[in-house]
């Protein structure tokens, strides 16, 4: 029986493994953390429909609890080697697996906001990231600033670590605009009296229901959208944050004191994906994500035969796109194994 090894147990790895297992293949999924789920387990409610993350976790759990495929946790893969017509996947000395095909589903990492020093993350208490806010929202509806105040004025800052030469990332992370709008709506629901601003460069509402969410934010939630990039943030004596930007639509510089600044951090390919890509000699694109051999026609094929890409190791993707991409990776693996004579 053909054996497939999946590296990474985020939603991409779980979905691709399960589809292949259902097709009748033997599949082993290796995850470096003690639990599966990857980044989504850090979020509270998902755009565009505010779905509680628990529903996605239950869906994933139903797959890996099915025992259709083998799960190995707490194990970080650090080598993929070609052994004749097989691939050897290893995690140090403790694990060696022989596979007919490998799926790389090592996912993404969020941009480290400390790299944008002028925004004051980890320097000023009341500057947090979208990831921190998800964590706060997960822990209930009692939202206070890190210095213990109920925020009356909140600013969401778009494009932190994306579309920015200074951060070394030219690409758009594509999900942070809609995440900002989602989080702004959630904050308005919890704190109806707070003034909420989104400072954006361009609003990229690319998904089918994203623009509606933006419209809803304007119509029902009183969110103000200001077209201008944050130039710098500074902390006041009372721990509020002074932010400066240009309102580019009116052409005036603006300043504003807010109780809470939320930085919309972008998605990067991350050190895991870098490491796996390098050890297996996979091609990267100029944004450091893994490069499929064809951007339209072979989105799951890596530059090495038998090694396939699933999910956000190849580009930023939403949950829906990640799952689609993972299912298509499974089909590509199946096609490959059907057509190979070994």
């Amino acid at each position: 029986m053909k054996h497939i090894v999946t590296i990474g147990g985020g939603i991409a790895g779980i979905e691709a493994s399960d589809v292949l297992a259902e097709m009748g293949y033997k599949v082993t999924l290796v995850e470096k953390e003690k639990s599966l789920g990857g980044n989504v387990s850090k979020w509270s409610y998902l755009f565009p429909n505010m779905r509680p993350i628990g529903e996605i976790e239950d869906y994933m759990k139903s797959k890996y609890d099915s025992n259709r495929f083998t799960v190995i946790k707490n194990t970080e893969v650090n080598q993929i080697k070609r052994k004749k017509d097989k691939l050897e996947v290893s995690a140090g000395d403790e694990l060696k697996l022989i596979a007919d095909s490998v799926i790389v589903a090592t996912g993404f990492e969020v941009f480290d906001a400390k790299r944008k020093e002028e925004y004051g993350y980890k320097i000023y208490d009341n500057v947090i990231t979208s990831v921190d806010l998800e964590n706060m929202l997960k822990n209930g509806k009692n939202i206070t600033t890190p210095t213990g105040k109920i925020p009356k004025k909140i600013a969401f800052i778009h494009c932190v670590g994306s579309r920015d030469e200074k951060s070394g990332n030219h690409y758009c992370s594509k999900l942070c605009c809609v995440t900002s709008v989602k989080q702004a709506i959630e904050m308005n629901e919890i704190l109806p009296d707070a003034e909420i601003y989104c400072l954006y460069i361009d609003l990229r509402m690319y998904g089918l229901e994203f623009e509606e969410l933006y419209l809803k934010a304007q119509k029902q939630h009183n969110i103000q959208f200001i077209r201008g990039k944050l130039s710098e943030a500074a902390e006041n004596m009372d721990k509020t944050i002074l932010i400066k930007a240009e309102d580019t639509l009116s052409g005036y510089p603006i300043k504003m004191n807010v109780d809470l600044v939320v930085l919309l951090v972008g998605m990067e390919s991350g050190k895991n994906t870098q490491q796996i890509g390098k050890c297996a000699n996979l091609s990267f694109n100029s944004n450091r994500f893994l490069q499929p051999v064809d951007p339209h026609l072979a989105r799951n094929n890596s530059s090495q035969a038998g090694i396939f890409l699933a999910g956000t190791c190849s580009s930023p993707m939403s949950v829906k796109e990640t799952l689609d991409n993972a299912r298509s990776a499974a089909v590509e693996v199946h096609k490959y194994l059907m057509n190979s004579d070994h």
Partner: peptide, 23 residues
């Protein structure tokens, strides 16, 4: 240039007088 206004916001001159480098 993508007209983000970062330059104008930080501009030493623009914070004192009517000057908008981006515009």
């Amino acid at each position: 240039c993508m007209s983000c206004g970062g330059c104008t916001a930080t501009c030493s001159a623009g914070n004192l007088i009517d000057f908008n480098i981006r515009k």
